[in-house]
């Protein structure tokens, strides 16, 4: 892969990772069934699902960019759907509450009313259908973005340097994991610990995330390009 194209791939991948965090429903208060979303911070959950995607993308790295990106996206989506399904199961059977969203009265997909099933004094629990779909979209984006960074870094390393393939793959994986962690944490400043995904009003703050992620990703991309090609 051409090093300049690889650097652009790293920047685009980093920005997509930042966007994905807005789509994945997560809330720290969800651990007490007091809010809609997976019961952990949005940043850490997005990192967890993105790294699961990276693990899946690792198998396909030698098969080309499109299949690596698709593998990463689907691996990430598999992680998030398993987590959401079983988080809903534990809310249903462990704490006795039904999935309810706090940001809409009727589910746009199923049309089911939300407020009657919301326990008094809380802001929702677990993930109803539309919120879960938002999570899958977020995971697909996050997995694709992380895998794009991974494949681009690997392409740059194999094009420019003569290091062994196994070493190049592991270095590229570490870079992708690092870019993932940086761009997952940045949206935390606008999400402040809670988001319900694409139906949340905080989606309006997406441009702020976009700008910060572009700045961070450009720095990262240029630094990696300089480290691999120039130095």
């Amino acid at each position: 892969m051409d090093p300049i194209a690889a650097m652009i791939g790293i920047i685009i991948g980093g920005v997509i990772v930042g966007i994905c965090v807005h789509f994945i429903p997560a809330s720290a208060v969800g651990a007490m069934s007091a809010s809609t979303g997976i019961a952990t911070g949005p940043s850490m959950l997005s990192a967890g699902c993105g790294l699961a995607g990276l693990y899946a993308a690792g198998y396909s790295i030698k098969l080309g960019l499109p299949i690596t990106v698709a593998s990463g996206a689907l691996g990430s989506a598999l992680m998030i759907i398993c987590t959401m399904l079983l988080a809903n199961a534990i809310c249903a059977f462990g704490t006795g509450v039904a999935p309810v969203a706090g940001t809409y009265d009727k589910d746009p997909i199923t049309g089911w009313r939300q407020k009657p099933f919301m326990s008094p004094g809380t802001d929702g629990h677990s993930m109803p259908t539309t919120t879960a779909l938002s999570g899958i979209i977020g995971a697909l984006l996050g997995g694709a973005g992380g895998s794009l960074v991974f494949a681009s870094t690997y392409g740059m390393l194999t094009e420019v340097t003569a290091i062994a393939t196994a070493t190049a793959i592991t270095i590229a994986g570490m870079v992708a994991a690092g870019v993932f962690l940086v761009n997952c944490v940045l949206p935390a400043y606008v999400l402040v610990g809670k988001t319900e995904g694409m139906t949340d009003p905080k989606m309006k703050k997406l441009p702020k995330t976009l700008i910060s992620c572009i700045v961070a990703s450009v720095f990262t991309g240029v630094f990696i390009y300089a480290a691999v090609v120039v130095i």
Binding site: A31, S33, I38, T40, M44, C49, A52, Y55, I90, T95
Partner: peptide
Amino acid sequence: LLFGISLGSIASGTGDIQYGAE
């Protein structure tokens, strides 16, 4: 590292609900 972070976020998002809410 990938498994550790993934498992940590899964346990935090699923199993800990029973501890925190029940």
